[in-house]
C-alpha cells in the first residue's frame, strides 16, 4: 500500500513545437523527460519504507546504480497495453519507425522484449511498484557501506512481494520467482541505454540537464 501511494505522478514530454522534427529533437525531448522523471524518482525512493533509514551515501549509491533501470521499468509498465510501441509519456509514444529515425531502434527492441515478458505475465500494478523498489535495493553497487542494512531493505521488499503473490496468485507458486527472473533483462537493457546515452553525450549535439548528466557520469 505504501509503495502504491508513493508512485510519482504522470509526466508529460511536451516536445518543443518550435523545433523541426529530427533525431536531435527526439533525443532532446527524451533527455528532458528523463531528467524530470529522475527528480520524481528520487523523491519516490525516499517513500520506500526503509530507504530513508539507510545512510545518505548508500542511498546515493543505490540510485546511481539503478536510476536507468527505474526509468526503463516505468516505460515498460506504461507500454503494456500498447502493442509494439513505447509509451515514454502519454504525449510521447514511439513506434519502431520513430525509434529508428532517432537512432534508438536497438534500445526500442530491447525495451519491447521486456514489455512482452511482462505482458505475457499480465504484470499488475502492485507487482510493478514492488519490483521497481526491488530493482533499486538490489542494484549491486560496489560502494555500499552498510551491506547488512541494504540486505535488510531487499529482504523486506522481497517479503512484500511474496506476501502479495501468496494472497493474489495462489494458483502460481512460482510467480514471485518469474518476476525476479525478469530483472537480469532489465539490468541488461539499462546498461545498453546508459552506453547509448553516454555516446550521445560525447557527440555533444543533444542538450542534457544536469541531474541526467550527473547520473550518466556516475555509471561510466
Amino acid at each position: 500500500t505504501l509503495l502504491l501511494g508513493a508512485e510519482p505522478e504522470k509526466v508529460c514530454a511536451m516536445p518543443d513545437p518550435a523545433l523541426p522534427d529530427s533525431d536531435i529533437k527526439s533525443l532532446t525531448t527524451l533527455c528532458d523527460l528523463a531528467d524530470r522523471e529522475l527528480v520524481l524518482n528520487i523523491s519516490w525512493a525516499k517513500h520506500i519504507p526503509g530507504f530513508s533509514s539507510l545512510c545518505l551515501s548508500d542511498q546515493m549509491s543505490l540510485l546511481q546504480s539503478a536510476w536507468m533501470e527505474i526509468l526503463i521499468l516505468r516505460v515498460a509498465f506504461r507500454s503494456l497495453l500498447c502493442e509494439d510501441k513505447l509509451v515514454f509519456a502519454e504525449d510521447y509514444i514511439m513506434d519502431a519507425e520513430q525509434a529508428k529515425s532517432a537512432g534508438l531502434l536497438e534500445l526500442h527492441k530491447a525495451i519491447l522484449q521486456l514489455v512482452r515478458r511482462y505482458r505475457s505475465m499480465r504484470l499488475e500494478r502492485e507487482e510493478f511498484v514492488t519490483l521497481k523498489a526491488i530493482a533499486l535495493a538490489n542494484s549491486d553497487s560496489m560502494h555500499i557501506e552498510d551491506v547488512e542494512a541494504v540486505q535488510g531493505l531487499q529482504d523486506s521488499l522481497h517479503e512484500a512481494l511474496l506476501d502479495y503473490e501468496c494472497v493474489h496468485h495462489r494458483e502460481d507458486p512460482r510467480r514471485t520467482g518469474k518476476l525476479i527472473m525478469t530483472l537480469p533483462l532489465l539490468r541488461q537493457t539499462s546498461a545498453k541505454a546508459v552506453r547509448h546515452f553516454c555516446s550521445i553525450k560525447q557527440d555533444g549535439r543533444v542538450p542534457m540537464h544536469k541531474l541526467f548528466l550527473e547520473l550518466l557520469e556516475a555509471n561510466v
Binding site: I42, S43, K46, S57, M60, K210, L211, E214, E217, A218
Partner: peptide, 15 residues
C-alpha cells in the same frame, strides 16, 4: 561525492 551534488541535494530535501 563532490561530483554528485544534485543527487545529494535532492536526497537531503525533506519532501
Amino acid at each position: 561525492k563532490e561530483k554528485h551534488k544534485i543527487l545529494h541535494r535532492l536526497l537531503q530535501n525533506s519532501s
